[in-house]
């Protein structure tokens, strides 16, 4: 157990190392991505708040990721249930289809989506982004949910149905609770992919909907300053606060039990 703990500590250090550097750098007084040596400064935090573009982009991204993750985890559960519990023609096709979207290089899908949403009059709408993001993230939520449904013995559902439950009731009362953790994992994966997606979004999004990653990516096109580091640092702190809040509300214990 001690070895496991030590190993985990090492991995956590590896995970956090570049982030800690960015956090540290965000306090730089310099106008470059340069680590502060003797003085710390909050100027880039001021800059970040002085530019409403970033703040608006953050709220847009959060909204988009939330809608995307909700839609994706529900639809992925339904689809995963069908793929695991039923044998029907075309099952393999659906499996392949659901895995395909993140395999197409972002540029290609992005340009294709831009042409397409433009043709159908959805260009520069929030729903165009939702459609694209759900398509991109769902397959990944689906995989982990699928694996978990497979681990729930179908006998349990049959037993419920023998006792008079409908198939739907059996699914909702037996399978959903038993796979809740995987659905949650799927939700989280969907959320973070959507929140960070840039290569597809950059092409297809209209001027009214610049997501945060797209905004940051564009910002660094012909200039550089640590504003973006300050924003990243604030994101880390914000999610930490969110987890603390959830913990306070008692959400974490129930979630992991």
């Amino acid at each position: 157990m001690i070895w496991l703990r030590l190993f985990n500590l090492l991995m956590a250090v590896f995970m956090l190392a570049p982030l800690v550097l960015i956090l540290w750098m965000s306090f730089t007084p310099f106008e470059m991505f340069r680590l502060p040596t003797d003085t710390l400064s909050l100027r880039w935090y001021r800059e970040a708040f002085n530019y409403p573009g970033f703040l608006n982009a953050f709220f847009l991204s959060a909204r988009l990721a939330l809608v995307t993750a909700l839609a994706a985890s529900v639809m992925a559960f339904l689809a995963a249930y069908a793929l695991v519990r039923f044998r029907f023609p075309g099952r393999r096709f659906f499996e392949a289809l659901f895995l395909a979207p993140l395999l197409v290089p972002g540029v290609v899908l992005g340009i294709a989506l831009l042409q397409y949403v433009n043709a159908i009059g959805l260009y520069n709408t929030f729903w165009a982004l939702v459609l694209a993001h759900v398509a991109i993230v769902t397959p990944f939520a689906l995989r982990s949910i699928q694996a978990q449904i497979r681990a729930v013995p179908e006998d349990l559902e049959w037993a419920a149905m023998n006792l008079g439950a409908s198939r739907l009731q059996a699914m909702l009362r037996i399978t959903v609770p038993l796979t809740a953790r995987a659905v949650l994992a799927g939700f989280v994966l969907a959320f973070i992919i959507s929140f960070a997606e840039v290569t597809v979004t950059i092409f297809m999004t209209g001027p009214a909907y610049p997501t945060l990653p797209v905004r940051i990516y564009n910002y660094l096109s012909d200039q550089v300053d640590p504003t973006v580091a300050a924003i990243s640092a604030m994101l880390i702190v914000l999610s930490l606060a969110l987890v603390l809040l959830l913990d306070r509300l008692g959400g974490l214990r129930t979630l992991a039990k």
Binding site: P18, L19, I22, I192, A196, I216, V228, S232, I236
Partner: peptide
């Protein structure tokens, strides 16, 4: 994933 890939 909380940090933009470019910034990272």
């Amino acid at each position: 994933w909380l940090i933009n890939v470019v910034v990272k």
